[in-house]
Design a protein around this nucleic acid. Structure first.
Lengths: 211, 211
DNA sequence: GTCATCATGTAAGCCGTTACATGATTGC
DNA sequence: GCAATCATGTAACGGCTTACATGATGAC
């Protein structure tokens, strides 16, 4: 999100659900430490702290001296001046982002894939296709294993467990065909790479048909 | 699983995937502490430790005294005699199981629902129906929120994020109709509660149709 | 006699959460 | 002036994982 504009933590948290659908939900307890880590790593930097330029001593009145003394007494404890910290992404940050986005995901971390796809626009067409096809291969393997496990244990499964496993299998199948559609959409339209073999009206071939 | 027969930890871990489909995967690092906690809570008990009845001092030979001394020196450190620990479920365990299985699940903990349904056979028909309908209501709410979020932010979403959110929405819809089928299957067949209103050939009414 | 497998456990660590603590800004 | 909200952070904890440590059993 910082690739589009500098933002501060609170704002980031507010916008996350809009950008990622309701599948985000990061708590402050993990957001702020994450920002601190990214800043320490040089991936982001504080573009502008809160405009702490309140009039040096506003309405200098009788109590101002006392208040200033009080403030001075406790300020040293926390060096930061508790205001908005607007972060911007750095060059290193862009590089890190690309690296993380292109990195192969854990086979069983579904969220990682979703997150990467959500930012698919920042990937090169090739990297995007790799992401989709890697994911597809993982789902196909998962499906095969699930089917093998079913064959091995289906008689031990009662109706509820079986229904669960079957529903799960169907979901995976649907995920695969969804990926197929995304993959097909990634391929350049036929009229951009004309050849004697391509017929614009023919449906795109399935990369590897689901059995 | 202990409801069906006493088993030891290693065996439990081996069988888990068969019983729950491949959606289980518990590591030893969490399984053994869990068993220890359950035992401490009185939910399970060691039915039979490993048959440690090896001949008291097998083949008493020249080195036996030395070996025994060595063993005696280090045995006090670990009181247990490292063998199979076959656990059986206790009365308290059955009660705890039922309590946990019937407890309302966290709205966003999908795994909890799956786990409960997998052991649905141990629930009373009423509790089972409650489980299914509670889950259905949660999914319906999730769907509504997702759609509201989409309406609010759809123009900000690019093709990838949108496709993701839409696919997610469809999955939820399918989950709901799957639940509807399960719920319908729970209802006693028409010929068991005959009434002037029930027509065996008419399709079951959807509890609350998905819009 | 030694290797693979069975079998149980502990320790360190990661990742994320909730609850808490603090402070700044704004509207009434 | 004071409440709501914006805004940042820390602390404690929970749950799960991997890596490590240990030991028993059986096959060859």
């Amino acid at each position: 999100m910082l690739k589009e504009q500098p933002l501060h933590g609170y704002e980031l948290k507010k916008r996350l659900p809009e950008v990622l659908g309701p599948l985000s939900r990061v708590s402050f307890g993990s957001l702020y430490p994450a920002l601190a880590k990214l800043e320490a790593a040089g991936a982001i930097s504080v573009a502008a702290a809160a405009d702490t330029s309140r009039p040096a001593i506003p309405m200098t009145g009788s109590l101002a001296g006392e208040a200033a003394a009080f403030r001075a007494r406790r300020l040293p404890i926390r060096a930061d001046r508790r205001g908005k910290k607007v972060y911007a992404i750095t060059e290193r940050g862009h590089a890190l982002f690309e690296e993380l986005l292109a990195a192969p995901a854990d086979a069983d971390d579904d969220r990682a894939f979703s997150l990467k796809l959500a930012f698919g626009r920042y990937l090169s067409p090739e990297a995007r296709l790799r992401l989709l096809e890697r994911r597809r291969a993982q789902l196909v393997e998962r499906l095969e294993q699930a089917r093998a496990a079913m064959r091995a244990a289906s008689e031990r499964l009662d109706a509820y467990a079986r229904s669960l496993v079957e529903h799960d299998t169907e979901s995976t199948e649907r995920d695969i065909s969804w990926l197929d559609r995304l993959i097909a959409a990634e391929r350049p339209p036929a009229d951009l790479r004309p050849s004697s073999l391509s017929d614009p009206s023919a449906p795109a071939a399935d990369p590897t048909p689901v059995p």
